[in-house]
């Protein structure tokens, strides 16, 4: 180890420019996990108490988060790969983003 700028002062490990690159995304995913737990807990509690309408509203919110978070994650990578000059995989991510709304549209149209 040469002790260059940015190296870990305790272990002497070399600075890793790629370390922590997903931190913002990981933070959002952890928050979303807790949101889903709290909302699901509320929906179960209200449902058991026989309050079906509010339970239904919370269940919809839960499904919105469960569907929205993976899509947000794909969008995060589509943007990242576009900015960083990886157009082939940015297009793959963009195509994946189009699939769920397409499925919803088809299911609504076909009843």
């Amino acid at each position: 180890m040469n002790g260059g700028p940015g190296d870990d002062p305790l272990s002497g490990a070399p600075h890793d420019p790629r370390g922590g690159r997903f931190d913002p995304l990981a933070r959002i995913l952890r928050w979303a996990r807790w949101v889903v737990v709290v909302v699901a807990l509320g929906a179960v509690g209200l449902g058991v108490a026989g309050l079906d309408n509010p339970a239904g509203v919370l269940a919809i919110a839960m499904v919105v988060v469960l569907v929205g978070v993976p899509m947000m994650r794909v969008g995060w990578f589509a943007r990242r790969w576009t900015v960083r000059g990886d157009p082939r995989f940015a297009m793959v991510a963009g195509a994946v983003l189009l699939l769920p709304p397409t499925g919803l549209l088809i299911s609504v149209l076909t009843g």
């Binding site: 929906a43 179960v44 449902g47 058991v48 079906d52 339970a55 239904g56 919370l58 269940a59 919809i60 499904v63 469960l66 569907v67 929205g68 993976p70 899509m71 699939l99 769920p100 709304p101 499925g103 919803l104 088809i106 299911s107 609504v108």
Partner: peptide, 17 residues
């Protein structure tokens, strides 16, 4: 799951509780 859930939601097949 997101893709499938949207279809099931469109078909009204998700029970809240």
């Amino acid at each position: 799951a997101a893709a499938g859930l949207l279809v099931f939601a469109g078909q009204g097949r998700i029970d809240a509780t």
